[in-house]
Design a protein around this nucleic acid. Structure first.
Length: 389
RNA sequence: GGCCACGUGGCGGAGUGGUUACGCAGAGGUCUGCAAAACCUCGUACCCCGGUUCAAUUCCGGGCGUGGCCUCCA
């Protein structure tokens, strides 16, 4: 399940400004997100709930929190009472008094504690809003995720994932809300937080001018002067454990692409087994240790050349990982076409030159092919060529 | 300022209280007209300083560095 938070003050402001509905405004961005995720080989989620479809449940959950004395109404707002939650801060390992003494918290006059956060806030008559027992308004950030989780997955679900930057306050507040509404029963059994991405050693930001989207990487030559295949990006990301920070570099993508092309040369057109490799699955089962899992695959690749069973197993496992589906090596080089007929003609000329022992001419022809991005290999069964990675 | 995470060989990147993954690059060899591919061989690294221990990269304390969070404000 993947939540879409489509009610948020910036979205409301923009929809109002343009005179369109929230749905019309957010449909486009949601679609882009879905397409990008798909291009990276992520399976679509079973459920993709939206805040706009969850309003009754949000209101009901807030009412439950008020009834359980975890929330109070003040000046048209409903606020979560952090003092009512002895465990508050357990996920981010922060103590309440430390946060307050951190002195950056805004003290609103109607808050009992500066750390109390908004569950519901009032909307102007002209502003987008929904009816509630506390007046017309809209939900604060955090409550929507608690409500969508409860609605579709029940009080407790197994794994909650998200970026490391969301641990505080978002996930911390989700826990406070859901557990406050469910008499302390946990919202999730496990939390998985992924580390941050950097670009060429710097954080990605618009002001640094290195902000780059998946869409651009796929379709435009903005990173390293080329386009990048979704599966190359996927494998590149899998090379780092999810909790670690990752530096996104051209060098990394080039190296990953070369690896994937090596695999493709061996596996294209060969059969696959039914099940992925056991040791590979064992590595993934250990906190999703993808780098260790990839090490297993490298070992398999080493033996796969001379072992058809290993080849079939490797192919199935790569497919399971979502990085290979019988592509040819050149498929992983996007936006570059090579004139196969011209290549074949040059190779024929070179073969003739070699026969005539004109090695100078043969080497010149090889250099010409290299310039075209083509590498040739003289094997026992003739000369073959491949796109250089 | 407070809190959290991370700091591994040329690069990428796992992991572990002692026998030192894995990939790339690099070196040597077989092979080749030359190459490439393939195959074989080669890397004793773990930010700094203390401490615990027979033994620390791995545990504890301190420091430095990098990154994140610490604002829902109608």
């Amino acid at each position: 399940m993947r939540n879409i938070t489509d009610v948020e003050d910036k979205i409301i402001a923009r929809a109002t400004e343009r005179g369109v509905s929230i749905r019309d405004l957010t449909e486009g961005t949601a679609k882009i997100y879905q397409e990008d995720a798909l291009a990276l080989g992520n399976l679509p989620p079973t459920l993709e709930p939206r805040v706009t479809d969850t309003m009754p449940e949000i209101v009901a959950m807030i009412a439950k929190l008020v009834a359980n004395n975890h929330a109070y109404v003040a000046e048209g707002h409903v606020l979560f009472d952090v003092a009512s939650d002895a465990d508050y801060g357990k996920l981010s390992r922060r103590a309440l008094d430390e946060m307050i003494s951190g002195a950056r918290v805004e003290v609103a006059p109607y808050k009992k504690s500066p750390m109390d956060f908004v569950l519901w806030k009032p909307s102007h008559a002209t502003m987008i809003g929904w009816d509630s027992p506390w007046g017309r308004g809209r939900p604060g950030w955090h409550i929507e995720c608690s409500a969508m989780g409860e609605k579709h997955l029940g009080e407790t679900f197994d794994i909650h994932a998200g970026g490391i930057d969301l641990i505080f306050p978002h996930h911390e507040n989700e826990i406070a809300q859901s557990e406050g509404a469910h008499h302390g029963r946990p919202i999730a059994n496990y939390w998985m937080h992924n580390g941050f991405l950097q670009v060429e050693g710097e954080k990605m930001s618009k002001s640094l001018g290195n902000f780059i989207t998946i869409r651009e990487l796929l379709a435009e030559k903005v990173f390293g002067g080329q386009q990048w295949h979704g599966k190359v990006m996927r494998l590149a990301m899998l090379g780092t454990h999810y909790r670690q920070p990752t530096d996104w570099t051209v060098e990394r993508l080039l190296q990953t692409r070369a690896t994937l092309m090596d695999w493709a040369r061996l596996l294209h057109g060969t059969p696959a087994t039914d099940d992925p490799h056991d040791e590979f699955l064992a590595a993934l089962s250990d906190d999703l240790n993808t780098p260790a899992a990839l090490a297993v695959l490298h070992g398999l690749f080493a033996t796969a050349r001379s072992n058809a069973a290993d080849r079939a197993r490797l192919k199935r496992t790569l497919n399971f990982l979502g990085v290979y589906n019988d592509e040819k090596d050149a498929d992983f080089i996007v936006g570059q076409t090579i004139d196969a007929a011209a290549v074949e003609a040059l190779i024929a000329k070179r073969i003739a030159a070699r026969k005539a022992k004109d090695f100078k001419e043969a080497d010149r022809l090889r250099a010409e092919l290299t310039t075209m991005g083509v590498a040739i290999e003289d094997g026992p069964s003739g000369t073959t060529w491949k796109v250089m990675s």
